[in-house]
Design a protein around this nucleic acid. Structure first.
Length: 479
RNA sequence: GGCGGCAUAGCCAAGUGGUAAGGCAGCGGUCUGCAAAACCGCUAUUCACCAGUUCGAAUCUGGUUGCCGCCUCCA
């Protein structure tokens, strides 16, 4: 049980040691709820969902906090456009976020705080920073002074001097340093605002995470995660605020996931290629999407495209086919076997190495192939030894699926679901298919192969694939 | 301009010092009336290029080329 994690702070894989034995305090930056969630959100959320599942499986008690940023400029602007208040807007997208994530079989975090629920904590941290002279009020705003924090830049590997050279930040003459960032922003008329020692206003973006992390998890936590894009400035600023305020190491392990590209392009509003989760799940099964997202190492970029999704769907089906095959074995005792075997251990080896799900999937597929071979070779009389291997493999596959958040349904319902979806997409009456399959069965009995093959071809045109098994013909939808 | 990442077969993708996982596609085969599914075999003497360290490098060092990301809201 020696997990190694790539720490963005040290740029090295380090053995995972928690502050408190067997307990993990973990914070992951959640969405700013001003718009629907896209595939990038899906990746981040799924990756950390898998990490939490694995840590729990390995015996850690995980307190997992994932926040909602429910107040900020983007929310204010969007609400203004729509003519609704910010709270209403935030609620709408929080609800959507849950719908998307439930569909993707993402478990809820232990705590899911909202920035607006922690205004008091935020004000306290800001005050503390002012007292320590590491922040300064300015006309109702409060800024963090980056120069006061000597280690500023340690996460992103930047130096203030270097950045100033090629500065692309809008210069605000009033700030002491162009990189000073707002902890508190004064409210313009009509904007949502909270009372504070500096007048009415709202928190800056970065401070909420410091406040919520420290108040819910403590001043030093084990893991802080998020997308790579958050390294600078968001997480850099969080470190500065937190370590300045509390005088302690803020985070032990920083974990950042890579981007999702769309057909080799970065997702961006300007390119108009933002793929929303709610649209993607209309086309692909959520489990296929999870499998796709986990098929690359979490730190590498991943390219979303039709071919990749078809491969992921095919891979999912391959494993469901195996599971169904095992469950159809006479004498299959169901999922009783809880003992984990060789395969599970190999999967853990992959996961222990910086949560290498891509390698873990390799283990899974080669195991499925081996187990299928055993089934092929033994025909209908499985030896005791073979049967033990199959049972152990089967339960390991399910255990792995549990970590990855796939194979949640039975193979029967998976295939049924696919058939239903196919019929709906193609607008086909299932009775027609049953009728054609029956006709073909009759033709085959009469050895009228030409007729039988003609029916099969007709079904194929409807994307229906037939499998003639020993106990009858089964049809599947081919997407 | 500053900082960082990546380059492995037709495609996707693991592998950070010990002689190239896995998936898809392709070809050949087993099975099948024929298929489908499944399985077996074949498919990178080689890991962008050049030099170096080493008994040994895809893995380490230096350089070259190409692609990408961050530095502005962003998962």
């Amino acid at each position: 049980m020696n997990i190694r994690i790539f720490n963005t702070l040290t740029k090295k894989k380090e053995f995972f040691e928690t502050v408190e034995p067997r307990k993990v305090r973990m914070y992951v930056c959640g969405p700013t709820v001003y718009d629907s969630s896209h595939m990038g959100h899906a990746r981040s959320v799924v990756v950390f969902d898998v990490i939490v599942r694995y840590l729990q499986n390995q015996g850690y008690e995980v307190t997992y906090v994932r926040n909602f940023t429910d107040i900020d400029d983007k929310i204010i602007n969007r609400a203004k456009e729509l003519g609704i208040d910010t709270k209403e807007l935030a609620e709408k997208y929080i609800k959507e976020f849950y719908e998307d994530m439930d569909a993707l079989n993402v478990r809820r975090a232990t705590l899911e705080p909202r920035a607006t629920e922690h205004i008091g904590d935020i004000i306290q941290v800001v005050q503390k920073l002012i007292e320590k002279k590491m922040a300064y009020p300015l006309d109702g705003d409060v800024y963090f002074s980056v120069e006061s924090f000597k280690e500023y830049g340690k996460l992103s590997g930047r130096k203030l001097e270097d950045m100033e050279a090629g500065a692309r930040v809008a210069v605000n003459e009033r700030k002491r340093n162009p990189f000073d960032f707002a902890l508190w922003k004064s409210a313009k008329p009509g904007e949502p605002a909270w009372e504070s020692p500096w007048g009415k206003g709202r928190p800056g973006w970065h401070i909420e995470c410091t406040a919520m992390s420290s108040s819910l998890l403590g001043e030093t936590i084990d893991i802080h995660g998020g997308g790579k894009d958050l390294v600078f400035p968001h997480h850099e600023n969080e470190i500065a605020q937190s370590e300045a305020a509390f005088g302690k190491n803020f985070v032990r392990y920083w974990i950042h996931n890579g981007f999702v590209n769309i057909n080799q392009e970065k997702m961006s509003k300007s390119l108009g290629n933002f793929l929303l989760i709610k649209d993607i799940i209309k086309i692909y099964l959520p489990e296929s999407i999870r499998l796709f997202l986990l098929s690359n190492h979490y730190r590498s970029p991943i390219d979303f495209n039709e071919k990749a999704m078809e491969e992921a769907s095919g891979a999912l089906e391959k494993i469901y086919t195996f599971l169904e095959r095992v469950e159809d074995q006479p004498g299959m005792p169901g999922k009783s076997d809880k003992e984990t075997g060789h395969l599970w251990q190999q999967f853990c080896d992959a996961m222990n190495d910086d949560f290498n799900t891509a390698q873990g999937l390799g283990v899974l597929f080669s195991a499925v192939r081996n187990l299928n071979r055993i089934l092929d070779e033994s025909g209908d009389q499985l030896s005791h030894e073979d049967w033990e291997q199959i049972k152990a493999g089967y339960s390991d596959v399910l255990e792995i699926g549990d970590i990855l958040g796939i194979f949640k349904q039975s193979p029967k319902s998976y295939f049924e679901q696919k058939r239903q979806k196919g019929l709906k997409d193609e607008a086909i009456d299932p009775k027609l298919i049953e009728k054609m399959v029956d006709e073909r069965t009759e033709a085959r009995k009469a050895k009228a192969w030409t007729k039988a093959d003609k029916i099969r071809d007709e079904l194929l045109d409807m994307n229906i694939i037939l499998e003639d098994r020993a106990d009858g013909t089964v049809w599947k939808y081919n997407d």
